[in-house]
Computed example of a mutant assay.
Amino acid sequence: MIPRVLVVDDHPLFRFGLCTVLSGDPTVALVGEASTGAEAVAAVRECEPDVVVMDVHLPDMTGIEATRVLLGEHPRTGVLVLTMFNDSESVVAAMRAGARGYLLKGSGQDEIVRAVHAVARGEAIFGSGIANHVLGFFTEQAPAVFPELTSREREVLELIADGVSNTVIARALTLSPKTVRNHVSSIFAKLRVEDRAQAIVRARKAGLGHPT
C-alpha cells in the first residue's frame, strides 16, 4: 500500500521542498499540505492521510497540540514529527501526544521516506541524536514490574510493548541486532511466552508501552 501523506509546516520554503521530495517519490502519495494546526486538523478530515508529517512550531497552536487534536478524531492516523527541536521536553511531549516518529530537520530524503513508511505500518521510529530522549521517556514511564528481568531486559520489553522493532531497539539502546535478539529470547523465556505478541500482551497488562 502506498501511504497517503499530509505535510504540516509553517515555513513555505521548507514545506515546498519537502512536498517536492515526497511528490517525486513513487512509493508515497502526497495528498495535501498545511501551514497551521487548524489547517492540519481540517486537512486530515478532508484528505484522510495515513501519515501526517508535523512540525512542532506552528503559528496558531503547537504541532504537539495539533497532533493530540487530530489523533483524538482520527486515532489510526500516524504522526511523524519533523522539526528542529532536539530537546527532551519536545520529544517526550510528542510521544505523549501520540506521535509514532520523531526526526530532525536536516534528515536525508531517504531517511524521511523510510520513516513515513515505518509510521504508516504502525511502527515507532526515531532519528539519530534523540535516542537518549526516547529511552528516558520509556524508563521514566515504566513501572517497576517483572523483577525477574534485568534492567536492560526491562528496557527492551518497554520498547517491545510500544511496538518497536528489533532494529529500532538496537539503535535506541546502542546495541547490536544480535544482542537485542538475545535479550528478546531471554525475555520470552523468563515471561514464559512463546512469541512477541504474547510478550506485548503481558507487558501492556502490566502498564508498559504507549500504543497509539
Rank of each mutant, 00 (worst) to 15 (best):
residue 44 V to Q: 08
residue 44 V to A: 09
residue 45 R to T: 09
residue 46 E to K: 11
residue 46 E to Y: 00
residue 47 C to L: 01
residue 47 C to W: 04
residue 48 E to I: 00
residue 48 E to H: 11
residue 49 P to Q: 05
residue 50 D to P: 15
residue 52 V to R: 01
residue 53 V to E: 12
residue 54 M to P: 01
residue 54 M to R: 11
residue 57 H to D: 05
residue 58 L to A: 02
residue 59 P to G: 04
residue 59 P to V: 09
residue 60 D to Y: 06
residue 61 M to W: 00
residue 63 G to F: 05
residue 64 I to A: 01
residue 65 E to D: 13
residue 66 A to R: 00
residue 66 A to L: 02
residue 71 L to Q: 12
residue 72 G to M: 14
residue 76 R to N: 11
residue 77 T to L: 03
residue 80 L to W: 15
residue 81 V to E: 15
residue 82 L to M: 10
residue 82 L to A: 05
residue 83 T to H: 09
residue 83 T to P: 00
residue 83 T to E: 07
residue 84 M to I: 02
residue 84 M to L: 10
residue 85 F to C: 04
residue 87 D to V: 11
residue 87 D to W: 06
residue 87 D to C: 06
residue 88 S to A: 07
residue 88 S to W: 15
residue 90 S to L: 01
residue 91 V to F: 09
residue 93 A to G: 12
residue 94 A to C: 14
residue 94 A to I: 03
residue 97 A to L: 03
residue 97 A to P: 00
residue 98 G to P: 03
residue 99 A to D: 08
residue 100 R to P: 02
residue 101 G to W: 02
residue 102 Y to M: 15
residue 103 L to E: 03
residue 106 G to H: 11
residue 107 S to Q: 11
residue 110 D to W: 00
residue 112 I to H: 10
residue 113 V to Q: 06
residue 114 R to V: 05
residue 114 R to H: 09
residue 116 V to G: 06
residue 118 A to I: 03
residue 118 A to P: 00
residue 120 A to Y: 06
residue 120 A to D: 09
residue 121 R to H: 07
residue 123 E to S: 07
residue 123 E to A: 03
residue 123 E to M: 06
residue 123 E to P: 00
residue 123 E to F: 02
residue 123 E to C: 03
residue 124 A to K: 14
residue 124 A to L: 05
residue 124 A to G: 10
residue 125 I to K: 15
residue 125 I to V: 15
residue 125 I to Q: 07
residue 126 F to C: 10
residue 126 F to G: 04
residue 128 S to F: 04
residue 129 G to T: 12
residue 129 G to P: 15
residue 129 G to Q: 14
residue 130 I to M: 14
residue 131 A to H: 11
residue 131 A to D: 12
residue 132 N to G: 08
residue 133 H to W: 10
residue 134 V to Y: 14
residue 134 V to Q: 10
residue 136 G to H: 03
residue 138 F to L: 09
residue 140 E to G: 02
residue 141 Q to F: 02
residue 141 Q to G: 06
residue 142 A to D: 11
residue 142 A to R: 15
residue 143 P to V: 04
residue 144 A to C: 04
residue 144 A to E: 15
residue 146 F to G: 07
residue 146 F to R: 05
residue 149 L to C: 14
residue 150 T to V: 03
residue 150 T to P: 02
residue 150 T to L: 08
residue 151 S to W: 06
residue 151 S to E: 14
residue 152 R to S: 08
residue 152 R to F: 08
residue 153 E to W: 10
residue 153 E to L: 03
residue 153 E to G: 04
residue 155 E to F: 01
residue 156 V to F: 11
residue 156 V to A: 09
residue 157 L to D: 13
residue 160 I to A: 05
residue 162 D to K: 04
residue 164 V to E: 12
residue 165 S to T: 13
residue 165 S to F: 00
residue 166 N to I: 01
residue 168 V to L: 12
residue 169 I to V: 13
residue 169 I to E: 15
residue 170 A to D: 13
residue 170 A to F: 05
residue 171 R to N: 10
residue 171 R to D: 11
residue 173 L to R: 10
